[in-house]
């Protein structure tokens, strides 16, 4: 299962210019699967960074406009797009000038494999 998802993520890593890393972690930021390009500074994906999304998403869900599904963060060097698949978090890290719309549409292709992962850990 893990290898299968890793292969799927690896295939998608090269579909958008500037995409550096795709990661699936749990709500505490513990990495489950991660693929990245060569020379990617892996320090960027520390658990504290990934874990913050779950808290931010939970708070954003309290704004009264429905459940928060994704957060896009722009930094000077990178952009980070995180999707709420709680208990999992899907993260794309790309160059700040990458096409955000294309990155965002990548998520549609990954919905099924991550859905399988969610189903595997859900308690009946």
């Amino acid at each position: 299962m893990d290898e299968g998802l890793q292969a799927v993520l690896k295939k998608h890593l090269h579909l958008v210019d500037g995409l550096r890393c795709i990661s699936v972690s749990d709500r505490d930021g513990v990495q489950i699967v991660e693929v990245h390009t060569d020379h990617f500074p892996t320090g960027v994906i520390k658990p504290i960074f990934m874990g913050t999304f779950a808290i931010a998403s939970e708070q954003a869900s309290k704004l009264g406009v429905g459940k928060n599904t994704s957060i896009i963060s722009y930094y000077s060097g990178y952009q980070v797009i995180q999707f709420n698949y709680l208990p999992f978090v899907l993260t794309f890290i790309a160059d700040s000038k990458s096409n955000t719309g294309m990155l965002y549409s990548l998520e549609e292709d990954l919905r099924d494999p991550i859905g399988h992962l969610q189903a595997a850990v859900s308690v009946p």
Binding site: V16, N99, G101, M102, Y104, S105, E108
Partner: peptide
Amino acid sequence: PESSGLVSGLAT
């Protein structure tokens, strides 16, 4: 709206 990335990407 989901097509926006591809449309913009093609132009780029």
